[in-house]
Write a protein that binds this DNA or RNA. Structure first.
Lengths: 323, 323
DNA sequence: AACTGTTACGCGTGACGTAATGATG
DNA sequence: CATCATTACGTCACGCGTAACAGTT
C-alpha cells in the first residue's frame, strides 16, 4: 500500500475511469497506473474496478469506498504540506476564493485591498462562477473559500458560515415613474418588466418567491449572472432590477436610481463555504474575519467540527466601505 | 512524502519521542527512522521535533499538527484494509470489545453466544478494564468497541451510543435484617457497611451521589472492580452492595438475596464507544444491534457523523436473557 | 560506559518508462 | 484500425540495514 496507488486511484476515478487520461493528467505512463492499481487490488484481495473486456466501466462497491478513503488521505497530505508552509512563513502562500460576480465586484474589492496590504506575500486569486460552480470548486479543493448565497445542489462535507446579510433595493432608470411613488409595493413593481439574476443564483429565486407569495407574477425580460450587465440593461430602459444595496453607487452609476426595498424583500444571507477537514492557513482566517468580525479562528474551527450549520442570524449587515 | 514517514512519526510520538524505542517497535533500524523523519522535515521545510543536544525533547507546534494528521491518515489506511476484508469475506474477521467485568460476565455472555453462532468466522475477543482503560483502548484503535458507563476523563473523537439502561438492586447476605423492611430507604441502607465498585467506574460514583443528595454518608469498607469479588464479600457478611440487577442470579448466587432499589438509585446508562472515522465491519453493526435493537447501521453511522451525543433516552432496558 | 541520535555507505527491492501484446468496437 | 488495458523487461532510485561517529548523562 502506497500513496502513489491512492493518487492513481483517485485520478482514475476523476477521469471517468480511463487509465490513459489519468496517466496523462499525472504525467506518467498508463502501464504504471494499471500496475499500481492492480497491486492495490491484489493487496486488498478485492477488485476495485469493474473491467468489461478491456474497458473499465465502473467502480465496485469496495472501490467506491476505497476512492472515498483515498481522497480523504490525499486531502490530509495537502493539509500536512500546509502545516509546513504555515510554519515556514505564515505570511506567504496562496488563497483562492470562489465567488459570484456581484460579491467580487462590489463586496470584496475593499476587503481584498485591505487584505493585500496586510499580507502582501499572499497570492490572492478570485474565481467567478454561479453558486453551483463555486461549490464544485471548493469541494474539489480548487478553491479554499467559497462565498455565495446558496447553491441549488446539496453539498455534504462543506461547512457553511453565515457571513453577510444582504438587503436588496430596486434599481430603475433615472426619471422612472416608480421614483414618484411614496411607498413601493410588489404590485407596483410588477407593472414593469424585470431583469433578474439567473436562476442558479439564490438571489434570483428569492425575489421571485417574494412575488409568488403575493400571487403576483412579474414579467422577466432577461436574466443574467452579472450585476453590471443587469445595471447596463436597466440604464438602457429595458426594465427594472432588484439587486443588493451595495451593488449601487449613486456617484458612479450615472443614469440609475435606487429605491429602498427592505420592506419588500427579506434579506438574503451570504455564506462562506469551506471544506471540513481542511487546514486553514492563518491568513485565511484573517480574511474570513475581515468579511465578518463574528468569525475568528475559534468560531470557525468550532463550526467546521460541528455537523450542523450555524444560525443564519450570525450574518452581519454589510458595513459601507470606501471602495 | 511517504506513508512510512508518517508511520515512523506517529510511532516516535507514541514511544515518548525515543527513536530507538520506535525502531524497536517497528522492527527496523534507528538510522532508518532518523533519516526518514529528517527527510519529512526537509520536505516540509520545518522541524517537527525539538532536538536538544542529541535528545528529542518535544514536538514543535507543526510537529503536533503533523502527528495528528499522520494518525488520521494511518487510520484511514486501516479502514481501507477493512474495506478489503469486508469484501473478501464479510463473515470473517476480528472484533475486539473492551468492557468492564460486570458487562462481560453478565450482560455479554448471552449476546456473545448468539453472535458466535451467527458469525462463527469472526474472531471475537474481550478485553477488560475500568472505563478509563476502556476508552484508551478504543482511542488507540486496539479495541473496536468500548462498552461501559462513562469514563472519568474526557474523550474527544469518540462517539458514544447510549445502549442500555441499568437499574440497580441491593445485594445482602440471606437472612439479613434489611430483608424484613417493607420499603428500603437510603437511611436504612447506610446503617450497614457497603462494598462498592471502584471510583473509576461510573457506577461507584453515581451511587455515592444518590446518598450525598440526602446528606447521608455511608460507610464504604471496600471497593473493587469486579462484581464477582463484591458478591463474594457480601456473601461473607462483610457488608452490603449495590449492583446492576442483572448481576444477580437467584439460582446461582447461593447465600445472597437481592432487594429492589429502583426507587433509590436512578438508572445508569451504558454507552457503546467507538472511533469516529472508523470503518465498521458489517458484523460489528450486527453486534451492536444485538446489544440494543435501536442501533442499526444507519442510526450508528448517523451518530458517528454527528458531533453531538444522542439522547440517553435511546438506551433500552436490559432484556432478561437466558444465560 | 551506556545510551541516544546522526552520518556514511553498499545492497536489493520496487517503481517507472519503453516496447510489445491482447482485446474490443 | 484506433483505442484502451495488460504483460514483459531493463533501468534507476530509494529505502533499508550495517557500521562508524558524535554528543549526553
Amino acid at each position: 500500500m502506497n500513496l502513489q496507488q491512492l493518487r492513481y486511484l483517485t485520478e482514475v476515478a476523476e477521469r471517468g475511469l480511463n487509465l490513459s487520461r489519468a496517466a496523462e493528467a499525472l504525467h506518467t505512463s498508463q502501464p504504471g497506473i494499471s500496475k499500481q492499481i492492480r497491486l492495490l487490488e491484489q493487496e486488498l484481495r478485492t477488485e476495485l474496478l469493474v473491467r468489461e473486456g478491456n474497458r473499465i466501466t465502473a467502480l465496485t462497491e469496495p472501490g467506491e469506498q476505497a476512492v472515498a478513503i483515498a481522497r480523504r488521505v490525499l486531502r490530509e497530505l495537502d493539509n500536512l504540506r500546509r502545516v509546513g508552509e504555515e510554519s515556514v512563513d505564515p505570511q506567504r502562500g496562496s488563497l483562492v476564493i470562489a465567488t459570484t460576480h456581484a460579491h467580487a465586484r462590489y463586496l470584496l474589492i475593499p476587503i481584498v485591498q485591505r487584505f493585500q496590504a496586510l499580507f502582501p506575500g499572499v497570492n490572492l486569486s478570485l474565481r467567478q462562477g454561479n453558486p453551483d460552480q463555486i461549490m464544485q470548486l471548493v469541494q474539489a479543493g480548487e478553491a479554499d473559500l467559497g462565498l455565495c448565497t446558496r447553491p441549488t445542489v446539496a453539498t455534504p462535507d462543506l461547512a457553511r458560515l453565515p457571513c453577510l446579510r444582504i438587503w436588496r433595493c430596486v434599481l430603475v432608470p433615472e426619471d422612472h415613474a416608480l421614483l414618484k411613488k411614496r411607498r413601493l409595493t410588489h404590485q407596483a413593481l410588477a407593472a414593469y418588466p424585470m431583469i433578474t439574476l439567473d436562476a442558479s443564483f439564490a438571489g434570483g429565486v428569492a425575489i421571485m418567491q417574494a412575488f409568488a407569495q403575493e400571487r403576483i407574477q412579474p414579467q422577466v425580460v432577461l436574466s443574467a449572472t452579472d450585476a453590471d450587465v443587469i445595471k447596463a440593461f436597466v440604464a438602457s430602459g429595458m426594465g427594472i432590477a432588484t439587486l443588493p444595496e451595495w451593488a449601487f453607487d449613486a456617484k458612479r452609476d450615472a443614469g440609475l436610481r435606487s429605491i429602498p426595498a427592505r420592506h419588500l424583500f427579506p434579506p438574503a444571507v451570504s455564506y462562506l463555504w469551506l471544506q471540513r477537514h481542511q487546514y486553514l492557513r492563518d491568513y485565511a482566517c484573517e480574511f474570513i474575519r475581515m468579511l465578518s468580525a463574528a468569525w475568528a479562528r475559534p468560531q470557525v474551527q468550532q463550526a467546521l467540527a460541528s455537523d450542523q450549520p450555524p444560525d443564519d442570524a450570525l450574518a452581519v449587515d454589510v458595513q459601507p466601505q470606501p471602495t
